[in-house]
Amino acid sequence: MMSVKATVVSTEVGQKSKKGFQVNATLKTAALGAVVPLILVIAWEYLSRTGVFPPHLLPAPSVICQSLMNMSAEGNLWGHIGITLYRLFIGFLIGTAAAVVLGAAVGYLKKAESLFDPLIQAFRSIPSLAWVPLFILWMGIGEPSKVVLIAVGVFFPVYLNIVSGIQSVDRKLIEVGKIYNFSSLQLIRRIILPASLPSFLVGLRSGLGLGWMFVVAAELMGASTGIGYLLVYGQNTYSPDLIISSIVLFAILGKITDSILKTFEAKALHWQDTIEKKA
């Protein structure tokens, strides 16, 4: 027993000293991630200035920065970002909620699976953009049709991951619950839900990705605000800087929202015994 304790103490010390340069390590990773984009941006700027890229098709990064700054100074940039994020958020919430309810039922109950799964799979094979005309017909070109379209996009990846997550919960862990005479509800709450959390979070992340795709689609088709609208506006007014600014905005916002989910995922799943990548 003594020797066991001794090794524990030493691992704890190890962890502490690790934390010391963990901050450094994250900075290092971030810096490494910035290397390639920086090189590309510098090359792009250089080629634009020397006239290799025609400015009416591909303006220099500095021009794009300038136009972003102008928009934010005028104040309407934040409005566009805000409305896009709002649509995405509401659509994401609705899609996820529906997916959780249906996915949990289909994953756990054989009956629900036979009842709903074939239909849902059939709906899944409809390209989601095919819904657009119908949604516009039903709900007009206002907010509801956009939000519903995003919700449809988010629904499927979340649903699929919840179902497969629940169905792949280790039978051995469920038996542990059975030994303690757990009711079905207790089994779900105390074993099945936590055990399928990893797969649920994967679903959330891919759902968010699709959500971004559909927010663009929704805003391309008849909106008067939002980043997607800026894209259309840029196309109609022949301003490539506006189009590229919008694309850059999508990239930045998409990355930020995904990082938020990723951080949440890491926090929620710290108990997982997975491989740490080589440095």
Partner: peptide, 29 residues
């Protein structure tokens, strides 16, 4: 006829719940 409360079972594998700490795993039942 069903799982009896007077019975405790230890499996070949520990079958701990990976998301619970030791002190949460023990009173699980």
């Amino acid at each position: 006829t069903a799982v009896h409360e007077k019975i405790g079972m230890i499996f070949q594998e520990p079958r701990l719940l990976p998301w619970l700490k030791v002190r949460e795993n023990i009173p699980f039942g």
